[in-house]
Amino acid sequence: MKFSILKKLILLTVALAVVMTACGDGDGDSAVDGPTIRLRGQDFSEAVTIAEVYGQYLLAKGYDVEILTPAGFRTEAIDGLRNDELDLIVDYIGGSLTALAPDAATSADPDAVVAIIGPAYEEIGATLLDYSPAVDGDAFVVRGDSPATTISDVASLGYVFGASAQCFERPQCYLGYTDPAVYGITFAETVTVEFGPLLGEALAAGEVDAVVWNTTAPQITEQGFKVLEDDQGLHPAQNIAPIISTELLDAYGDQLRNDLNELSAMITTADLLAWNTETDIAKRESDDVATEWLEAKSLN
């Protein structure tokens, strides 16, 4: 059979279109009546696991849940809530504070932080639910052989400081460490390091002497580092808390609120550390880790 080049081109285009449509996936349905709850984890293992825990928990309770591919960080999560692309996010309250009220005074008392961010979330049409006892705070980390025990001790050591780009503009982070009114540390040099295991690699290799990490990073004990005491109380409270679209919450009523509060109350700091050890050290997948935890607590 002989085709002209034009007919061949049309044929190819049609074939391609058929393949593309065939690749699309269908969606399933769930039990409890109400709108779909769209949930997306921030793009680091702990947040991905947390999103899976909340998502799978709600699924097991019969809600219609869509767990989206993890993407972005706090800003993208809050923007997603604001632009109605997401219905539920889980964030660290101190982190929310820096994003929503960067000029507000920070506090190590979670209730004080919540008093500020609660109304701020209401302004964007979202409701802050009860915070969990689980805390993943900021950690000023040094190698195990460092003479320092508190952050203040670092002032005289001439350390090379490594942290993510975010840290360098935050009063609760780099600006606070260098501010003479707080810690007044003069670092020998600063290096911007992507947040995550690269911080530990840089610290172990001696490229930097101190990094800002999170307290539930399993590599801290794994690699023999230590967390210095925040003697000036610079770091804010960092309990995890779900934030949900008010419209969606109203659609479901108190049942959803109670279900979420019940789950938040059950998660502990030790759980976060255990999850991270599974995902980052044993290299297991977040969704499996979440399923196992929910099974152990008979929540699914």
Binding site: D43, S45, T69, G196, P197, E201, K283
Partner: peptide, 21 residues
């Protein structure tokens, strides 16, 4: 990096966890 999945998702996941597979 902007959450559109693809094979980069696997690469990024590996980078974030220093997980080579």
């Amino acid at each position: 990096i902007i959450g559109q999945g693809g094979l980069g998702r696997l690469i990024l996941d590996g980078l974030r966890r220093t997980f080579w597979t």
